[in-house]
Write a protein that binds this DNA or RNA. Sequence first.
DNA 1: GCAAAAGTGTTGTCCTTACACCCATGC
DNA 2: GCATGGGTGTAAGGACAACACTTTTGC
Lengths: 227, 227
Amino acid sequence: MELVNAYPKLPLTVDCVIFGFDENSLKVLLIKSDLELYSGKLSLLGDIVNANEDLNKAANRVLYERTGLKKVYLEQVHTFSKPDRHPGGRVVTTAYASLLNIKHYALAISTNELNWHPVSLIREMAFDHMEIFDYAYKWLQKRIQEHPLAMNLLPEKFSLRALQNVYEAILDTKLDRRNFRKKFASMGLLIDTNEIEVDVTHRPGKLYRFDYEQYKLRKKNWVGIDF
Amino acid sequence: MELVNAYPKLPLTVDCVIFGFDENSLKVLLIKSDLELYSGKLSLLGDIVNANEDLNKAANRVLYERTGLKKVYLEQVHTFSKPDRHPGGRVVTTAYASLLNIKHYALAISTNELNWHPVSLIREMAFDHMEIFDYAYKWLQKRIQEHPLAMNLLPEKFSLRALQNVYEAILDTKLDRRNFRKKFASMGLLIDTNEIEVDVTHRPGKLYRFDYEQYKLRKKNWVGIDF
DNA sequence: GCAAAAGTGTTGTCCTTACACCCATGC
DNA sequence: GCATGGGTGTAAGGACAACACTTTTGC
């Protein structure tokens, strides 16, 4: 079947929006742009998709090549396709996002000044990456309220305070501590490890594990019209 | 800048999942597959993306070419990229979805047996279109609970019963009539037109308009962790 | 004993659910 | 007058928001 060979073809890239959490603040992994035109500007981690890999694989490869990070859980966010979005010619890009604990993933590579940047300080980027980033950030804020994504970026055992810090940083808001704790207690998805924090300069908090087993058993029965 | 010319290129298509509503049931617009291999199988409305159009434009064009439908609001759902998803060779496709009132959009074309098919009867399709369809349907079910998408497929003036029928068909569930009405009343987004249904064989219902102005003014302040 | 953060309970409000009867119209 | 679906209210339960004091630890 040679039909497909006659089709117009386009270069396809992936761009990874890697959110990280550290010192109670949300960051994003960026490099300095390769392109002269955008010299000095920050850029997402992107590269071309090869002929025989799916987008997910491409995103993982690109992330690995640019950062040395492996086995990162990436989710597809959106595909951006404005014809003029890349000054070098037409390129369609699919954005992937992830959320991880900066302390768990040492950066093996520092090419292009690869580094974590606080989300709150990002003002502009190369290409249309600011638009992609904004989209991905909104996606993340919604996503974290519906999925236990936050657990990805905490150690296996964590305190409720640490969990709350994650939500506050990502949602960029303050939450009532008592209500937050009640909420998670009532979900029945946290297992008390009977351990407590160590090396803190105040009363240590209890440590919990997230009950992935239980979570998987739930089926979401979500009917609630609201807009 | 000739960088981009050296990149590997892939054929890119769009596939439109056009949901329609008629006679209180949810349908989807499908054609018989072009391909010999899939002869007799149903297929989404898809075609190649041209070199200088963005995906959104491509989706609109493809829809127009295949159906004669114009000015349909399409939303991007997901991009599917398995290397073997098309038997004729590697093709990446981006799925777009819409929801419209079948009675408002007469099909101008009937090539490939273009037709509306009840969603509940779809069992298999050509290519990976069943997977795309399933994804789009889940997307729709979530989307309609968070956005006033349902209004797209009602006449400008509609009864609460008609609105409820939409939700019941799409969510595939029964809703309590009184609670449903209270819900929409309390939202404050429906305007009583002071008109009533005509030509019904029972007590006519009041007709409402959706208050798009008001809706646009709302900003969603949505913080509610739930999973 | 002081600083710092952990831990905890109650009340009011709102939202959701469940549920049954009368009303207006066409025929 | 009967069949069909429109329209309405209430009570109970659950979720959420607001709010302050005591406890434990390190130093």
